[in-house]
Amino acid sequence: MSRLLALFAALFAFLTPLTANAYWEFGHETVAKIAYLNVRPDTRAAIDALLRRSKLLDTPTCPARTIEQASVWPDCIKQLGERFSYAYSWHYQNVNICEPFDLKSACKDGNCVSAQIERDMKLLKDKSVPARERLQALAFLVHFVGDLHQPLHAADRADLGGNRQKAQYGDYATDRLNLHSIWDGPLAERAITTPPSIVRTYSQAEKDKIAAGSVEDWSRQNWEVSRDVAYKTAMGGDPCGPRPDVAKLDNDTITKELVPVAKLQVERAGLRLAKLLDEALG
Results as ranks from 00 to 15, higher is better:
K207L: 13
R200M: 11
Q204C: 00
R190Q: 15
D245E: 14
M235H: 15
L177T: 14
H180Q: 11
Y231H: 08
T194I: 09
E189V: 11
P242V: 09
T201E: 15
A212H: 13
G185Y: 11
I192L: 09
W223F: 00
G241M: 04
I210N: 05
A205H: 00
K209W: 04
I192P: 01
K207N: 02
A212E: 11
S181L: 10
N178D: 15
V229P: 03
D217N: 12
G237Q: 13
C240Y: 08
N222P: 05
W223C: 01
A230H: 07
A212D: 14
Q221M: 06
E216I: 14
D245M: 09
A191V: 12
G185K: 01
I192Y: 04
P244K: 00
D217H: 11
E206W: 02
S203H: 05
T193E: 14
W223M: 01
R220V: 02
I192C: 06
R200D: 11
N222F: 04
S226P: 02
T194N: 11
S197R: 10
P242Q: 14
L179W: 07
R227P: 03
N178H: 15
L187T: 11
V215M: 06
H180N: 14
W218R: 05
V215F: 09
W183L: 07
Q221Y: 08
D208W: 10
D208A: 15
P239N: 05
P196H: 08
W223V: 00
T201Q: 15
P244G: 03
T201N: 14
W218Q: 03
S219V: 09
D184K: 02
A230D: 08
I182D: 07
P244L: 08
T194H: 07
A234Y: 05
E206G: 07
K207T: 06
P195S: 07
P242L: 09
E224F: 03
I198G: 01
V225P: 00
S214W: 02
Q204R: 07
G236R: 04
R200G: 13
A205V: 03
I182S: 05
V229C: 07
K232H: 06
A188L: 01
A234W: 05
R227I: 08
Y202N: 09
I198P: 00
E189S: 13
I198A: 04
N222E: 13
P186D: 08
I198T: 03
G213Q: 12
T194F: 10
